[in-house]
Lab assay of single mutants.
Amino acid sequence: VRQEELAAARAALHDLMTGKRVATVQKDGRRVEFTATSVSDLKKYIAELEVQTGM
């Protein structure tokens, strides 16, 4: 499950970095929206997932 969450989070980051205004991911069973202003929060979430998956 964590691998899927990590892939979704990375895709969301890619979307935001390429101009999409809002990206949505499932985080702990709930839907979370990230915007360009919350990229740093999304990067932290990705880092947490990488630690949890041993990457």
Results as ranks from 00 to 15, higher is better:
residue 38 S to V: 04
residue 53 T to Q: 11
residue 43 K to N: 07
residue 48 E to V: 09
residue 23 A to I: 08
residue 24 T to I: 15
residue 52 Q to P: 08
residue 6 L to E: 02
residue 53 T to M: 09
residue 32 V to P: 02
residue 37 T to M: 05
residue 21 R to H: 15
residue 5 E to H: 06
residue 22 V to D: 04
residue 30 R to S: 09
residue 35 T to P: 04
residue 18 T to H: 09
residue 21 R to A: 15
residue 40 S to Q: 06
residue 38 S to L: 08
residue 19 G to K: 02
residue 38 S to K: 08
residue 41 D to P: 02
residue 5 E to I: 10
residue 11 A to D: 10
residue 48 E to T: 06
residue 49 L to R: 02
residue 51 V to G: 08
residue 35 T to R: 05
residue 38 S to E: 15
residue 36 A to E: 12
residue 51 V to T: 13
residue 32 V to R: 04
residue 6 L to A: 02
residue 37 T to D: 13
residue 27 K to A: 07
residue 35 T to K: 05
residue 10 R to G: 03
residue 33 E to M: 08
residue 35 T to I: 04
residue 9 A to G: 03
residue 15 D to K: 10
residue 42 L to W: 01
residue 52 Q to D: 11
residue 25 V to I: 14
residue 55 M to G: 12
residue 20 K to C: 09
residue 17 M to K: 07
residue 55 M to K: 07
residue 4 E to Q: 09
residue 29 G to E: 04
residue 25 V to L: 06
residue 45 Y to R: 02
residue 48 E to M: 11
residue 3 Q to F: 13
residue 9 A to R: 00
residue 52 Q to L: 14
residue 30 R to K: 15
residue 28 D to C: 08
residue 51 V to N: 11
residue 48 E to C: 13
residue 54 G to K: 05
residue 6 L to T: 02
residue 55 M to T: 13
residue 27 K to S: 05
residue 35 T to G: 05
residue 38 S to Q: 14
residue 29 G to M: 02
residue 11 A to C: 10
residue 7 A to Q: 13
residue 52 Q to A: 15
residue 21 R to I: 15
residue 27 K to V: 15
residue 50 E to F: 06
residue 26 Q to N: 13
residue 37 T to P: 03
residue 39 V to N: 02
residue 37 T to V: 09
residue 16 L to Q: 00
residue 46 I to E: 01
residue 44 K to S: 10
residue 45 Y to I: 04
residue 35 T to F: 08
residue 12 A to Q: 02
residue 40 S to E: 15
residue 17 M to F: 07
residue 41 D to G: 06
residue 4 E to D: 07
residue 20 K to W: 05
residue 47 A to M: 10
residue 38 S to N: 12
residue 16 L to Y: 01
residue 22 V to N: 07
residue 44 K to I: 12
residue 34 F to E: 00
residue 7 A to N: 13
residue 19 G to F: 02
residue 7 A to P: 03
residue 5 E to M: 09
residue 34 F to C: 02
residue 39 V to F: 07
residue 50 E to I: 11
residue 40 S to K: 12
residue 39 V to I: 14
residue 8 A to P: 02
residue 14 H to S: 10
residue 28 D to S: 04
residue 24 T to V: 15
residue 6 L to I: 07
residue 9 A to D: 00
residue 55 M to H: 12
residue 33 E to T: 14
residue 22 V to T: 04
residue 2 R to A: 04
residue 10 R to A: 05
residue 14 H to N: 12
residue 49 L to V: 03
residue 28 D to I: 00
residue 24 T to Q: 05
residue 47 A to N: 12
residue 17 M to A: 08
residue 42 L to S: 00
residue 33 E to C: 08
residue 11 A to F: 06
residue 11 A to V: 09
residue 54 G to Q: 09
residue 38 S to D: 14
residue 45 Y to C: 04
residue 4 E to F: 11
residue 32 V to A: 04
residue 18 T to F: 04
residue 42 L to F: 01
residue 3 Q to Y: 13
residue 40 S to T: 12
residue 51 V to F: 14
residue 33 E to Q: 05
residue 48 E to F: 05
residue 40 S to Y: 07
residue 39 V to E: 03
residue 43 K to F: 06
residue 45 Y to G: 00
residue 41 D to S: 09
residue 17 M to V: 12
residue 53 T to W: 11
residue 36 A to N: 10
residue 44 K to H: 05
residue 34 F to V: 03
residue 44 K to A: 15
residue 33 E to D: 08
residue 20 K to E: 07
residue 31 R to H: 10
residue 34 F to A: 01
residue 54 G to A: 10
residue 2 R to N: 12
residue 47 A to C: 10
residue 1 V to N: 10
residue 29 G to Y: 03
residue 46 I to N: 01
residue 43 K to R: 14
residue 24 T to F: 15
residue 19 G to C: 05
residue 47 A to T: 09
residue 53 T to E: 06
residue 25 V to E: 01
residue 21 R to F: 14
residue 30 R to Q: 15
residue 39 V to P: 00
residue 54 G to V: 06
residue 8 A to W: 06
residue 34 F to L: 03
residue 17 M to H: 05
residue 39 V to D: 02
residue 54 G to I: 12
residue 46 I to F: 01
residue 17 M to S: 07
residue 35 T to H: 07
residue 24 T to C: 12
residue 43 K to D: 03
residue 5 E to G: 04
residue 19 G to R: 02
residue 15 D to I: 07
residue 22 V to M: 09
residue 54 G to W: 08
residue 15 D to Q: 12
residue 30 R to G: 08
residue 54 G to L: 13
residue 47 A to D: 09
residue 31 R to N: 15
residue 29 G to S: 03
residue 50 E to K: 06
residue 29 G to K: 03
residue 40 S to N: 12
residue 21 R to M: 15
residue 7 A to H: 08
residue 13 L to D: 00
residue 16 L to K: 00
residue 25 V to W: 03
residue 9 A to Y: 10
residue 46 I to T: 00
residue 13 L to T: 00
residue 1 V to Y: 13
residue 14 H to C: 12
residue 16 L to G: 00
residue 4 E to V: 11
residue 5 E to W: 06
residue 23 A to G: 07
residue 37 T to G: 15
residue 8 A to D: 10
residue 34 F to D: 01
residue 14 H to M: 11
residue 11 A to I: 10
residue 32 V to H: 06
residue 49 L to Y: 02
residue 23 A to D: 03
residue 24 T to H: 11
residue 12 A to F: 02
residue 24 T to M: 05
residue 22 V to Y: 08
residue 41 D to T: 09
residue 19 G to V: 02
residue 3 Q to C: 11
residue 20 K to G: 10
residue 42 L to V: 01
residue 30 R to I: 15
residue 34 F to W: 05
residue 31 R to V: 15
residue 12 A to I: 04
residue 14 H to E: 11
residue 5 E to V: 10
residue 2 R to T: 11
residue 4 E to L: 07
residue 30 R to C: 11
residue 12 A to L: 02
residue 18 T to Q: 08
residue 27 K to C: 10
residue 20 K to D: 04
residue 49 L to C: 02
residue 2 R to W: 13
residue 40 S to A: 14
residue 44 K to L: 07
residue 33 E to G: 03
residue 36 A to Q: 09
residue 19 G to E: 02
residue 38 S to P: 01
residue 33 E to Y: 11
residue 55 M to C: 10
residue 4 E to N: 09
residue 40 S to R: 10
residue 21 R to G: 15
residue 32 V to Q: 05
residue 27 K to R: 07
residue 53 T to P: 07
residue 28 D to N: 08
residue 38 S to I: 04
residue 10 R to Q: 11
residue 18 T to Y: 05
residue 31 R to M: 14
residue 41 D to W: 08
residue 48 E to N: 08
residue 8 A to S: 14
residue 43 K to P: 01
residue 54 G to R: 04
residue 30 R to W: 03
residue 50 E to Q: 06
residue 31 R to C: 15
residue 42 L to M: 01
residue 26 Q to K: 12
residue 35 T to V: 05
residue 15 D to H: 09
residue 8 A to N: 11
residue 27 K to Q: 04
residue 53 T to L: 09
residue 50 E to S: 08
residue 5 E to Q: 06
residue 37 T to R: 11
residue 6 L to S: 01
residue 45 Y to M: 04
residue 17 M to P: 00
residue 15 D to W: 06
residue 46 I to A: 01
residue 18 T to P: 00
residue 20 K to R: 03
residue 48 E to G: 04
residue 15 D to T: 06
residue 55 M to D: 12
residue 15 D to N: 06
residue 50 E to A: 07
residue 6 L to C: 03
residue 1 V to H: 13
residue 43 K to I: 15
residue 28 D to R: 02
residue 12 A to N: 01
residue 22 V to G: 05
residue 24 T to N: 04
residue 16 L to A: 00
residue 40 S to I: 11
residue 24 T to E: 08
residue 12 A to W: 02
residue 26 Q to M: 15
residue 26 Q to T: 14
residue 7 A to T: 10
residue 4 E to P: 05
residue 32 V to E: 05
residue 3 Q to T: 12
residue 46 I to V: 04
residue 26 Q to H: 07
residue 7 A to L: 11
residue 31 R to T: 10
residue 52 Q to W: 09
residue 51 V to I: 14
residue 36 A to V: 13
residue 20 K to S: 10
residue 50 E to L: 11
residue 49 L to W: 03
residue 11 A to S: 12
residue 41 D to Q: 12
residue 49 L to M: 08
residue 17 M to D: 05
residue 28 D to E: 10
residue 15 D to S: 10
residue 1 V to W: 04
residue 18 T to K: 11
residue 15 D to G: 06
residue 24 T to R: 04
residue 2 R to F: 11
residue 39 V to A: 06
residue 49 L to A: 02
residue 28 D to L: 03
residue 43 K to W: 11
residue 6 L to H: 02
residue 52 Q to Y: 13
residue 9 A to H: 04
residue 33 E to S: 09
residue 9 A to W: 03
residue 49 L to E: 00
residue 27 K to L: 08
residue 31 R to Q: 14
residue 36 A to D: 10
residue 47 A to I: 07
residue 7 A to I: 14
residue 38 S to T: 14
residue 8 A to L: 08
residue 27 K to M: 08
residue 8 A to K: 09
residue 27 K to H: 05
residue 13 L to C: 05
